[in-house]
Design a protein around this nucleic acid. Sequence first.
DNA 1: AACTAGCGGCGAAGCGTTTCGACGGTGGCA
DNA 2: TGCCACCGTCGAAACGCTTCGCCGCTAGTT
Lengths: 342, 342
Amino acid sequence: MVTIADVARHAGVSSSTVSYVLSGKRTISAETRDRVRDAVRELGYHPHAGARSLAARRSHIVALMVPLRTDVYVPVMMEIAIAVTTAARQHGYDVLLVTNDEGPDGVRRIAGSGLADGVILMDVELDDERIPVLQAQGTQAALIGLPRDVRGLSCVDHDFAAAGALCADHLADLGHREIAFIGYGSGVYHRHAGYAERTLAGLRDRASRRGLRFLHRTCEGTYESTAGTLARILADRPGTTGFVVQNESAIGPLLTLLRTSGRTVPEDASVIALCQDQLAEQFAPKLTAVTGSAQELGRVAVDQIMRRLGVVNGGGRPGDELELLDPVLTVRDSTGPAPRLA
Amino acid sequence: MVTIADVARHAGVSSSTVSYVLSGKRTISAETRDRVRDAVRELGYHPHAGARSLAARRSHIVALMVPLRTDVYVPVMMEIAIAVTTAARQHGYDVLLVTNDEGPDGVRRIAGSGLADGVILMDVELDDERIPVLQAQGTQAALIGLPRDVRGLSCVDHDFAAAGALCADHLADLGHREIAFIGYGSGVYHRHAGYAERTLAGLRDRASRRGLRFLHRTCEGTYESTAGTLARILADRPGTTGFVVQNESAIGPLLTLLRTSGRTVPEDASVIALCQDQLAEQFAPKLTAVTGSAQELGRVAVDQIMRRLGVVNGGGRPGDELELLDPVLTVRDSTGPAPRLA
DNA sequence: AACTAGCGGCGAAGCGTTTCGACGGTGGCA
DNA sequence: TGCCACCGTCGAAACGCTTCGCCGCTAGTT
């Protein structure tokens, strides 16, 4: 292994000089700087990460805690994870992947050992048990998802309430009077997953404000459960002409079921999906969808934690900070004017 | 921060004794051991990762290099990533997530800095440019996917050839005589992605051995491209009754298209998917599918690298080692006997 | 009875960085 | 001319851990 001493010898300077050249924390003459940089390149020097973290008390690593549970649409998680690593690299940081099965102890271990300088938490629950640990340990963190109490925390999430409202508005604008919301399985709501509840609230509120009749039904996402959900909706509200789907895996079944029940999309029924554009475009007809950028989510979380770590200066002390990302409605072929007669 | 010296003082022993208790590398009397362990617990001691890696020349971290490209089905990647972290934890290892956009330099950086003790490479290409770097640096690695030359390497992958053969056999057994393979987009084949080529080869060989007429068509996975692909297949071989799909996103469109073209599955046409069971069950009818466990893939890769790192003793020096995981055929509702008349 | 072997513990020497203080040298200013 | 400030560089002291060698002891062997 090539060490800083090797570089120093090769460049004819002391190792502290090499360190200062690399960190830029003191002024170094241009010629010395170049000699050192050449030596670094020729020898293929990479500072030893452990030694660095020991001496500087900074590991240049952030931990990303991902849920094991997969009721949240998996590709989105991956997209966030990749966005996080890419964004972190631009600040000289690497990303440690930690699963949630260690729970709060995972946070303790990672932070306590100095393995990571900070933590990004995904799939944060309303009363997440990892948050007290964070605060007890004084660990810097950024949360993707909203806990009940955001004081002193940095959080980022999609504005699910706005997304729900956008769906209601779009259907109302098209003249629909009765709409149904096909959500996630009941477990998700019982767990009080913030995103599910906020979407529902946003949708319900806007629907009522626009004078729409609104119905919410849970759906596990299998073909059978989707069939059951749809049947119940049509039994309870035969006049339903607008559907909003949040459970990604229910989309395919829903379209098939509408078709086999003799309803043409969008002439007889309109469908809006809350999902990624990529997915929305895979169906026939292409789906009108409300989307938030997963990449943006990861990028913002990294920004937040870098600010808290003082890697970038974010103007002042880290207080609480809450960023909600605006959803985007993309109109495609699955929504249209409400049919004249019910 | 609580250090090993704090623990030593609290337990009334030297810090080396604490270290030996924790590592178990020397015998320690039961009473001392317990005193030390109590102290560790009371103080909430976690060894400093950097100091440890510096002194022991082991970081207890493996890097996982994931592709940025997403033509491979994303949930599978995530499943592998999670399986890897879970398996690694059981050996006291953590996982560093590295994206492929750094390319070979990423390997150099990670290994050169001692950040990770070894690397797991996902989405390995036939002539992967990261492999020479690995060997030049003497970095231990496990590959998920098969390069052209596996000498001296540890590799694991699904046995895609066997999977292809399984599909051909199943359709042949059901009496089908003409089958078509809907693969990935042409870019995947031009890139010589091993999994695509091996599936194709396995399928083609077995089809010919079983006396089936076989046709291969690429498909980008959008609704339009699937429609085009299907139209070409039916134009070239109107007698086709068996379909094998590898591109996950083409499955939905294919089923829709078959239905709208008046073909009932499985009475008029049989469909086999090469995809995860979870996905196969989301369609109507539920799909007969050939599957390999993504979790197993991650688990085996971790086993391999732990053996190479000497964390677990794997009997002898690490030579080349190639594990192909057996695929499993699960018969569901999308395949049936070939129709009597073409 | 003398010698060896192993047990249980200690002290100290690294591991490769960062960073603080120090120190000549140079230039500006009084 | 003398003083101060700053620039560029160096030496050395941490940072917290592992591990080697050593040293009493006890117990078993010749």
